[in-house]
Design a binder for these strands. Structure first.
Lengths: 250, 250
DNA sequence: GCAGTTATCTGATCCAGATCATGGAATGAA
DNA sequence: TTCATTCCATGATCTGGATCAGATAACTGC
């Protein structure tokens, strides 16, 4: 049995159940697709948002619920998932502050196709579908930037499909760790820490494998000295080695 | 050995190497995201497009090429794919007249992330990225509709990820046949014919399996009387049975 | 029609990874 | 501190589907 590390890194747990007005404005300024708008315009937009707080494990909405709202994360981590027949979930995305999700499509479906669950304490800003549509109409540059973001997500989804179709579990896990580290990595003494609680189960949901396989692969990576890990956390000690594994067999 | 059917259905093979002006305008009117524009506006837009013809098997572009152009299919079938290490391709989408692809993103990447290959004779309309961006700026409603289309593709990609993560090869093939039939099915005496040349190899690329497995599953479906099939074609005789298979194990 | 080529079918074997099962280690509550 | 809970590691076994290897049917060009 591998000796597990006693949480050598401190997982940041912010717990703002409700966002302060300052935070709201700050977030809306940070949101990449509002870039270029005036402060007064942001304040105007801010008035159309409502805020909601969630505890870890809470569901923001379920697949099948009426899709009235679009969400923007102000604080925390949210996972987007689909349920499977056998109760195993498939994680489609892991979202961080500044990212949007939910009822985006201006026309089309009237229900959410995915479920959104809080991984940490979360403060989310919500706006009605119509309200968001109005903003897009009013500020065409915002629409263009949203289009770019959705296009980027489509490419990411295509990457995932490619991986699932053509790579081994070990390669997918290596690639996923790199992606996560790029998105929410923070330098730490033990390596680039993936700054979110992430269990073997969740890593399995994210890579279309089982918790057992995820555990075995993670153990091997640790024996190789490529990562440091413990209960619900992983830090990359040697990203380059992971990259070589992920891109192996050219 | 199964008795194979001697091409009982006639695969339509249109061969317009170049599109007529009438076809070009017709297509641009058909394209869903130009809906709502005046005829004179469409004519104006039409002048910004160039046309290119391709033969079956031709590549419209390769992953890694500079992504200057956006394509709209006027005639024919195009597959979007990624190459894998081992030479096996992964098909990400199968596009029909009226659909766009290529350099969509207004900013971001400067090279195509996917390869586009003609499955039939193809006439494609192309426009520069900047030209398309200008249209989006000029007509915000077009931008909104493009956004909806990309969002719908993202949902479709998430569906695929879900399937790859949680379903058997047989289920994925059944689901894929239904999707293809919904998109390009034509009523025929033997069933709903999937109106595109589709080999076992391509079905395998589309469902992340091998040609051998695709062949076995297709043979079984035919023995069950759910489909009629032959060299490069498949028709659905009993879509409901396929649906039950695809959604099995609830 | 005939020959060569390509697509398809199918049997036999093999393996990555799922499943099943169990024990140990960190965490949180009392 | 101690117990209960949750998360993680790892061995043993099993299996869906990949891989390997031919054989046969349909299509193409002459």
């Amino acid at each position: 049995m591998l000796k597990r590390r006693k949480t050598p890194v401190e997982i940041k747990h912010t717990e703002p159940h409700l966002c302060s007005t300052a935070l709201r404005l700050h977030i809306l300024h940070e949101v990449s697709f509002f870039a270029g708008l005036e402060h007064t315009q942001i304040e105007e937009i801010n008035r159309q948002f409502h805020e909601k707080g969630f505890e870890p494990g809470d569901y923001l909405y379920f697949a099948g619920d009426p899709a009235d709202s679009l969400f923007i994360i102000a604080e925390g981590r949210v996972k987007l998932l689909r349920h499977t027949a056998a109760g195993k979930d498939v994680m489609l995305d892991l979202l961080i502050p500044g990212e949007f999700f939910g009822g985006l499509s201006t026309s089309s479906e009237s229900t959410y196709l995915e479920t959104a669950q809080a991984l940490t304490s979360v403060c989310a800003l919500t706006i009605s579908r119509e309200g968001f549509r109005a903003i897009l109409n009013q500020y065409p540059t915002v629409g263009m930037q949203v289009l770019d973001l959705v296009t980027a997500r489509l490419e990411a989804a295509h990457d995932t499909i490619h991986q699932l179709s053509a790579q081994t579990a070990e390669q997918r896990i290596a690639a996923t760790l790199l992606t996560l580290a790029a998105k929410l990595g923070e330098p730490h003494e033990v390596g680039l820490l993936i700054q979110t609680p992430l269990s073997r189960d969740e890593l399995a949901e994210l890579t279309a494998t089982t918790p057992e396989t995820a555990s075995r692969v993670i153990s091997q990576f640790q024996r190789d000295g490529w990562i440091a890990t413990g209960r619900q956390w992983i830090a990359l000690a040697d990203p380059e080695a992971l990259r070589l594994t992920a891109e192996m067999e050219a």
